[in-house]
Design a protein around this nucleic acid. Structure first.
Lengths: 357, 357
DNA sequence: CTGAAAGCGCTAACAC
DNA sequence: GTGTTAGCGCTTTCAG
């Protein structure tokens, strides 16, 4: 229903007093209705709602915040990157935040550096937020901000102290372990790991999961390959790997990101190695588009949605019931997506299949 | 410098009155300094700044907003999708907004449906924003919201009326045209187009650019192929195309999105068609990862950064100087990225090359 | 160049 | 169930 012309074209926006007058109640009653407080008669509630509707009344958040101390919004400091992972996480955070009845403020940190994250949190606090979520902070240890609202750390341990900190993992360790075990199960003697930048907590987590899987099977731990999440860095790693002598001992690589895996595979093939016949590769993230490249990428899916939803639930709890214990958080399930980039090592393969691939 | 303990551990946060007292000036002078207003002596300014620093003073935005009417933030209604394009655009918007000295509020619309977009704008207005940016609204025509702040429409014409609307294109028409012309230049008799969902404005724009290129060369316009941006839909289109008889007349396809192009290529290859030898494919967006798949995807790069920066510049101008004319907006450059998924049609190719590919 | 008084529009206590 | 009285912390007049 579009607002009819000539209704009440008064100059400025209607205030709660206008609604109260029209409804024939006090301003406080209007406030009660708008805040869904109990102890309001149904009659009064209806009148208020009708009046608000008629006036096109919009509650003034600034005034509400000033009077109540609550801002009704949650701030998120996000990584300044465009990867599938971060974008997906941010999307789900937004949904969860909105479903919880909060508005979202976003600040990006350049490369997630310590100073950047401190500044980002600082600016969020200045804008006014009831809680903040820090997604995958780069560094461990204290960053030098002191925060008086609850903070949710997504996928990493707390990077600074706050009124209350809640953490929510994305199960990276288990995921990395599952990826590695998949390769081991296929018969590979060991698995190489193409890691992300060392400063990232996510990198460490994946390295540890990989290590744990190797150790559990008594497999030899080869030296790490290093990347920076970009496909170009994956390509570089693959190039180095393939050109490194006639060494055919590496038969399996677990890359810490889908895009690096794609770059890696491309380099391997450019160098004449076949994937998965000569070398198997598994990625990390679960971007669906990589089901459509050749070979389709085997990967582990990060539970972005579950992590965001659970995390926000916890954060909102910490905001609204500061004195209660946090409800238990359920660990998201591990999802291995087996596609075409992994296979048994050359030594195990049926010769016929291997030949006419 | 971490805040020293035992400094002035008073219970609640310092207010401007505290700063004024410590600096030995009035509250108004503190306000002037913090707002960079003129007519403040350097001495006073220094004292105020020092006092604020010492107290760890943080200006209360809610109070400022209530008193001044300005919120210092810009709201963006974004598409609830995780594609490279939208993520990249949002990232650049955030940067531009922050560089302009504003905070960012984000609301996603489910699928960008009309009701969703109206609700999203509504909620932004309620939260309090000085301007809103609507990125790639799905529908044309009025959506039924009336807005009293300036609105920036990115990549589409205004979808509702506002205090002032500013639009910023992403050059989709020119980009689509360039993509099509590239294929025509290669010698293809005509070019098929795999379009996005019809409701999207972006879809229309690309169709028109494609059409214009075809018309300019007098090329026959084949029927449209339809997708929904997903790689799966690209695959479906490719499958239909390839299985459609022994019809080898289609030699070139321009897909409206990189991911659809990837799906398309995959289907084509599954069906035994070679890309680019039998069929050339060009995408749309410019996601760098697709330089690392086989074949590397030829595409056109959307000028997300330039569009976001220019658009925000215009929006901020509209907010801060409501009575001035908008500064001229420069059209972003067209960038065609030629990689390996395009080649001359079979009839033009060197037989030798064609055979041993 | 600086200060004093008066709200911005709402909610928090407390009465009724 | 409902209304009254005070502010929340800042910026805005308008005098000095």
């Amino acid at each position: 229903m579009a607002p009819a012309m000539g209704e009440n074209e008064s100059s400025s926006a209607p205030r709660s007093a206008d609604v109260a007058r029209l409804a024939g109640v006090s301003r406080k009653t209007v406030s009660r209705v708008l805040n869904n407080e109990p102890y309001v008669s149904d009659a009064a509630r209806r009148k208020v709602l009708a009046a608000a509707e008629e006036l096109g009344y919009r509650l003034n958040q600034a005034a509400r915040t000033l009077a109540s101390g609550r801002t009704g919004s949650i701030g998120v400091v996000a990584l300044g990157t465009v990867g599938y992972g971060t974008a997906s996480l941010l999307l789900h955070i937004e949904r969860a935040v909105r479903d919880a009845g909060y508005a979202l403020r976003v600040v990006n940190t350049p490369d997630g550096d310590p100073v950047g994250i401190a500044g980002a949190v600082e600016s969020l606090l200045e804008q006014g937020v009831d809680g903040v979520v820090v997604s995958e902070p780069i560094v461990e240890g204290d960053v030098g901000v002191r925060v008086d609202v609850p903070v949710l750390f997504l996928g990493a341990p707390p990077a600074f102290s706050a009124a209350r900190t809640v953490t929510m993992g994305v199960g990276a360790h288990a995921l990395a372990r599952a990826a590695t075990e998949h390769l081991l199960d296929l018969g590979h003697a060991t698995v190489h790991h193409l890691a992300g930048p060392r400063r990232w907590y996510a990198t460490k987590d994946r390295i540890e999961g990989w290590r744990a899987a190797l150790a559990a099977r008594g497999a030899h731990e080869p030296p790490l390959l290093n990347g920076d999440w970009s496909p170009a860095s994956g390509y570089a790693a693959g190039y180095a790997l393939a050109s490194d002598t006639s060494d055919t001992s590496v038969t399996a690589v677990f890359a810490a990101g889908d895009e690096m895996a794609i770059g890696l595979i491309h380099a391997l093939r450019d160098a004449g190695r076949r994937v998965p016949e000569d070398i198997s590769v598994v990625g990390f993230d679960g971007n669906p588009v990589f089901a459509y490249v050749s070979p389709p990428l085997t990967t582990v899916r990060q539970p972005f949605e579950a992590a965001a939803r659970e995390g926000i639930r916890l954060l909102v709890h910490a905001i609204e019931k500061p004195d209660t214990d946090l409800p238990p958080a359920s660990d998201p399930p591990v999802q291995l997506v087996v596609r075409g980039s992994t296979a048994p090592p050359p030594s195990h393969q049926d010769k016929t299949v291997q030949r006419n691939a």
